[in-house]
Simulated scan of single mutants.
Amino acid sequence: MPDDEAQLTPPEPLLQVIANLSRFHREHEEYYSQAPLQQAGELQARSRALKSLADRWSVVEAGEQTSPIAFAGTEDLNAPGLVAESGILFMEGEGEPAELQRLKRQVALLADESQQGGDWLAQAMEQAWGMAGTLAAYPALADLLGERHRIIANDWQSAGIQALVARLLRRALDLLAQVDFSPTALRADLRGKRKAPAYLYSASELLDRAADLMAESAILVHENERRWRVFRARVRELQSE
C-alpha cells in the first residue's frame, strides 16, 4: 500500500482491536437485546400479582380465622386464581407468605443487577467515546463514524435506563415495606383505612414502568446489530487490502 494510502487507513494493530470489538461486543449485545425482554415479562407477572392482591383487598370484607389448622388458606385474603398463578398463599396462623418474600428478593436482586450493569456500561461507553474520537484521523473510516457513535449513544442511553430501573425497583420495595403482610395485620387494615391496597397499587405501577424501560433498553441495544455488522465488514475489507 502506498504511503499516502496508508495514512488514510488505521494501522493493522488498531484494525485488529476494532475487529475484536465489532465481533465480541456485537455478540454481547445480541444477548442484551433479548435478556431484558424476558426479565420485563417476569417483572410484569410480579406486578400483576400485586395488583390482584390489591384488587381483592380493596373490596373484600375482613374475615376471621376460619380454621384451627394453621396451614389452612385464608378465605378472605387470597385473590381468586392467584395461588395457582404465583404460588402466593396466605394461610391461617402464618405470617407473610414465603412466595411474597421471594418476589421481593427477586426484585431486589434485579435492582442490584440493573445498577451494576448500568454503572459498568456507562464507564465502558466513556472509554469507547474517547477511542471513537481517535478514528476521525482515518478517512477510510469517516463514513462509519456516525454508525460507531450511534452505537455508543444507544448503549450510553441504555446504561442510564438501567440505573433508573434500579431506582424504580428499590422504591417499589420501599412501598411494599410499609405493609405488614401477616393475616392478622391485613385484616386489621381491611377493617380500618385499607392502606395496604394503595401501597400495592403504587408499587405495581413502579414495577410496570421499570418493565417498560427494560424493554426500551433492549430495543436500543437491538438497533446496534446492523451497525456493528457494517462496521465489521469495513474492517475486514481494509484488512484484506
Rank of each mutant, 00 (worst) to 15 (best):
D3I: 12
A159T: 02
L8D: 11
P80V: 04
Q116T: 14
E96H: 04
W120M: 11
L135C: 07
G81Y: 00
A153D: 12
E85D: 14
A128G: 09
P197W: 00
D174I: 09
I219C: 06
H28D: 14
F90N: 00
N224Y: 02
E42D: 10
E223M: 08
L169N: 02
H28W: 10
T74E: 11
W156R: 12
L109K: 14
A153C: 06
H25P: 04
A177V: 07
N78Y: 01
F90P: 01
L141V: 03
R229L: 11
R236W: 07
R234T: 05
Q44L: 13
E237D: 11
A49R: 02
E225V: 09
P68V: 07
R170W: 05
W120I: 12
N20H: 12
E92D: 10
A142G: 04
D155L: 15
D143C: 06
I219S: 11
L89R: 07
P2K: 08
Q178R: 15
P197E: 01
H222E: 12
V179Y: 03
F90T: 01
A45P: 05
Q127D: 10
A40N: 00
L15H: 03
P10E: 04
K51V: 15
E96P: 03
A210N: 04
L176G: 02
R26G: 10
S182R: 09
E126R: 12
G130V: 05
G192D: 15
K193F: 08
L21T: 09
R229C: 06
A198C: 04
E94L: 10
H25R: 14
A108D: 13
T134N: 11
V221Y: 01
L121K: 09
V230M: 10
G133C: 04
I69F: 12
A54P: 01
L14R: 13
